[in-house]
């Protein structure tokens, strides 16, 4: 059974130049334990697709189903808190918080009932952050480390789906591969549905399924 299904998804918005059709009847199915890569040139609609899948925005046409249930029936903020983990190109760690606090933040928002600090530390350990670094401010970490902290934050609430928007965009090759490895492991070892939006061919190569976006149209590549 698919965990996330897109049916005829369309999205457009208006600019001064006129209406932009960012997404045209996109249809796809995503399953647990699989790494998906969505590739395409800039402006092809990848980010729009991601924000619709994350419930940050609502499609103009079409439906999104989470475990066969229409996303419209969900509280979208709650949906994100409980079922989605997001990773961004710029990490988006809060500079005023330490590494462990950044991870704890997502647990607090998701109203995690267990020991939040312990869970956060476990997640950081899982992504390779050393214990003595837990209480360092996020700005004191390297780019690769920051992205790993961001990954820890994304998976802390144990979401089914991990959406990563250009997670290696700001990283060197070595760090990129480390982060991709973590993401692949999350899918293959922990059964997460990992969807990576990327330009990088070497990242796409690591995915199980590659989807291509072209001018708002979603194509299955293989």
């Amino acid at each position: 059974m698919s965990i996330l299904e897109l049916r005829g998804l369309s999205y457009d918005y208006k600019t001064k130049a006129g209406a932009v059709h960012a997404l045209k009847e996109a249809t796809a199915t995503f399953e647990k334990g699989v790494v998906y890569a969505i590739v395409g040139r800039s402006g092809s609609g990848k980010s729009t697709l991601m924000s619709l899948m994350a419930g940050l925005d609502v499609p103009k046409q079409g439906d999104i189903f989470y475990q066969s249930e229409d996303l419209r029936s969900f509280d979208r903020d709650r949906f994100r808190r409980e079922h989605i983990g997001m990773i961004f190109q710029s990490y988006y760690l809060l500079p005023q918080l330490t590494a462990v606090e950044n991870v704890e933040l997502s647990l607090e928002l998701a109203k995690y009932r267990g020991n939040k600090r312990k869970r956060a530390e476990e997640m950081l350990t899982l992504v390779g952050i050393k214990k003595e670094q837990f209480k360092k401010r996020s700005t004191q970490f390297s780019g690769g480390e920051q992205q790993r902290i961001a990954v820890a934050r994304a998976i802390a609430t144990d979401p089914d789906i991990i959406l990563a928007d250009e997670p290696t965009g700001n990283l060197d090759n070595e760090n990129s591969m480390n982060v991709v490895k973590i993401l692949v492991d999350l899918a293959h070892q922990y059964g997460k549905c990992v969807i990576i939006i990327t330009h990088a061919a070497e990242v796409a190569e690591r995915a199980d399924i590659v989807l291509k976006m072209d001018d708002g149209i979603l194509l299955t590549k293989g």
């Binding site: 997001m86 710029s90 988006y92």
Partner: peptide, 13 residues
């Protein structure tokens, strides 16, 4: 803005 986006993406209204 980034902080706002992050918190929104983490499910904060």
């Amino acid at each position: 803005k980034d902080e706002q986006n992050l918190l929104t993406s983490l499910g904060m209204k």
